[in-house]
C-alpha cells in the first residue's frame, strides 16, 4: 500500500464492496419480484467493478476476462433467459407473505454479516493478500445472505435470485483470493451460472402452468408424517 494509486484502488474497492453488500441486503429484504431482479443486476455490476479494480492492481488479465464474462452472462444473458422462461405475471407479483417479516429478516441479516467477518478473520490472519481483507468477508456475507434469501422467500424467482446472489458472493471473494484461476475453469463456471438460471426458470414455468402458482415455499405434498 506504499504507492498512492494503489491506495486509491484500495479505497475504491472498499466502496464497491460496501455498495455490493447493500444490494445483497436489498435482494433479501424487498417485496417486488422485479426490484429483486434489478438489484441482482446492480450486484453483478459491482462484482464487475471489483474485478476490474483488482485486475488493474494486480496486472491480471484473468480478472478482466472475469469482468467481461460477468457482464455478458449476469447483466445480459440471465435477465434475458428469465424474461423468456418466466411469464410477466410472475414479475408483477408482490410477495405478501414470507416466512419472516422484513424487519426481523434485516436483523438476522446484520447478524450474518458480523458472522461472516468472524469466519473470514482467521483466514486473513494466516496469509497476506491485501484485497482479500475487503473481498473475502463481504463475499462470505453475500453467501450467507443468499442462503438466507433461499430460506425465507416463498416465491420461485426471488429464491432463484437468492441463489444467484450467493454465487455472486463466492465470485466476489474469488476475484481477490484466486486472481489466477485457469481461464478454462472460469469459462466453465461462467457457463454454469446461466444454465442454473435456465433450468430453474423453465422449472418455474412448468410449476406455474401445472400448479397455477409460483409460491414454491407452499409446496408441501412431500414430507414425513
Amino acid at each position: 500500500m506504499n504507492n498512492p494509486s494503489m491506495a486509491v484502488i484500495f479505497a475504491l474497492d472498499a466502496l464497491t464492496g460496501a455498495v455490493f453488500l447493500l444490494t445483497t441486503l436489498g435482494v433479501v429484504a424487498n417485496r417486488q419480484v422485479l426490484a429483486s431482479l434489478q438489484l441482482f443486476i446492480a450486484q453483478s455490476l459491482l462484482l464487475t467493478c471489483s474485478a476490474i479494480l483488482l485486475g488493474i492492481a494486480t496486472n491480471s488479465l484473468h480478472l478482466f476476462a472475469v469482468a467481461a464474462i460477468t457482464i455478458a452472462t449476469k447483466t445480459v444473458l440471465i435477465p434475458w433467459v428469465l424474461r423468456h422462461t418466466v411469464s410477466i405475471e410472475v414479475y408483477r407479483t408482490r410477495e405478501i407473505d414470507r416466512v419472516l417479516n422484513i424487519p426481523s429478516s434485516l436483523l438476522i441479516a446484520a447478524a450474518l454479516v458480523v458472522l461472516a467477518y468472524a469466519v473470514a478473520n482467521p483466514m486473513l490472519g494466516a496469509v497476506h493478500t491485501p484485497f482479500a481483507k475487503i473481498n473475502l468477508p463481504l463475499g462470505i456475507a453475500a453467501m450467507f445472505l443468499g442462503i438466507f434469501t433461499v430460506v425465507v422467500r416463498r416465491e420461485a424467482v426471488p429464491q432463484l435470485l437468492g441463489l444467484l446472489a450467493l454465487e455472486n458472493g463466492v465470485f466476489f471473494a474469488g476475484v481477490a483470493i484466486v486472481p489466477d484461476l485457469p481461464v478454462i475453469a472460469e469459462l466453465a463456471a461462467a457457463v454454469d451460472v446461466p444454465v442454473v438460471a435456465l433450468v430453474v426458470g423453465m422449472l418455474t414455468r412448468r410449476i406455474h402452468v401445472r400448479l397455477g402458482t409460483t409460491s414454491v415455499g407452499r409446496l408441501i405434498a412431500l414430507r414425513e408424517d
Binding site: 483466514m123 463475499g139 462470505i140 453467501m143 443468499g146 442462503i147 433461499v150 420461485a156 429464491q159 432463484l160 441463489l163 450467493l166 454465487e167 463466492v170 471473494a173 474469488g174 483470493i177 484466486v178 484461476l181 463456471a189 442454473v196 433450468v199 430453474v200 422449472l203 412448468r206 410449476i207 401445472r210 400448479l211 414454491v216 409446496l219 405434498a221 412431500l222
Partner: peptide
C-alpha cells in the same frame, strides 16, 4: 415438480458452498 424444485435449489446452494471451498 416439487421434488425437482427442492433438488435443484438445495443441491445448487450446496455446490456453491463447495465452490468457495475449492477456491480457498
Amino acid at each position: 415438480l416439487e421434488a425437482a424444485w427442492k433438488y435443484v435449489v438445495l443441491t445448487t446452494v450446496g455446490a456453491v458452498l463447495a465452490l468457495l471451498g475449492f477456491l480457498i
